[in-house]
Simulated assay, not measured.
Amino acid sequence: MANISRYNPTDDAFDDLFRGFFLRPVRVGLEGQPDVQIKLDVNEDDKAYTVHAEIPGVKKEDIHVTVEGGMVAITAEVKKEKEEKDKEGKKVLRSERYFGKVSRSFSLGQDVDESAVTAKYTDGVLELTLPKRAESKSKRIEIQ
């Protein structure tokens, strides 16, 4: 027969605090720092992979894509500035700036033909077309 016990969330909080506190990553959110991530959609057909990466607010000159075999890496330099002024425009009441790099890398199931890769950046979405490299068929070799 199963034992039934009452759940107390404070017990778990104190257990987690003392058990492995220094082993777990702690994420601290900073006020004013936007949550910048590269979100991906990857599709595949017989001839190519198509990747749609959302990178809003970034200039296309600040995006770098590297393809090596089946590994794809996307890096973007993010520059966000926001200023709020009073009605006369003379006094800055608040100023927020964020500068940094975001990156995302992933591997594909098949190698990519690096010479035929195309990239297009429109309205905050990077579209990559990654043609698959023709697979070399294995050849059985007879031993003499």
Rank of each mutant, 00 (worst) to 15 (best):
residue 3 N to T: 15
residue 6 R to Y: 09
residue 6 R to M: 05
residue 8 N to D: 14
residue 8 N to C: 04
residue 26 V to G: 02
residue 27 R to Q: 11
residue 28 V to K: 02
residue 29 G to R: 08
residue 31 E to I: 09
residue 31 E to Y: 09
residue 35 D to Y: 10
residue 35 D to F: 12
residue 35 D to I: 12
residue 38 I to A: 00
residue 38 I to P: 06
residue 39 K to C: 04
residue 40 L to T: 14
residue 45 D to G: 11
residue 47 K to R: 10
residue 49 Y to Q: 07
residue 51 V to Y: 05
residue 51 V to E: 11
residue 57 G to F: 05
residue 58 V to G: 03
residue 61 E to Q: 07
residue 62 D to F: 07
residue 63 I to A: 00
residue 64 H to C: 02
residue 65 V to D: 05
residue 69 G to M: 07
residue 72 V to R: 04
residue 76 A to N: 03
residue 78 V to A: 03
residue 78 V to C: 05
residue 83 E to S: 06
residue 85 K to P: 15
residue 85 K to M: 10
residue 87 K to D: 13
residue 88 E to M: 03
residue 88 E to S: 09
residue 92 V to N: 03
residue 94 R to D: 14
residue 94 R to F: 10
residue 95 S to V: 04
residue 96 E to M: 06
residue 102 V to Q: 05
residue 102 V to A: 02
residue 102 V to N: 00
residue 104 R to Y: 03
residue 106 F to V: 11
residue 107 S to V: 14
residue 110 Q to S: 09
residue 111 D to L: 09
residue 111 D to V: 13
residue 111 D to C: 03
residue 111 D to K: 15
residue 112 V to L: 03
residue 112 V to H: 04
residue 114 E to T: 14
residue 114 E to Q: 11
residue 119 A to M: 13
residue 121 Y to W: 04
residue 122 T to D: 12
residue 124 G to N: 03
residue 124 G to H: 00
residue 125 V to I: 12
residue 126 L to D: 06
residue 131 P to G: 01
residue 132 K to N: 07
residue 134 A to I: 09
residue 142 E to C: 00
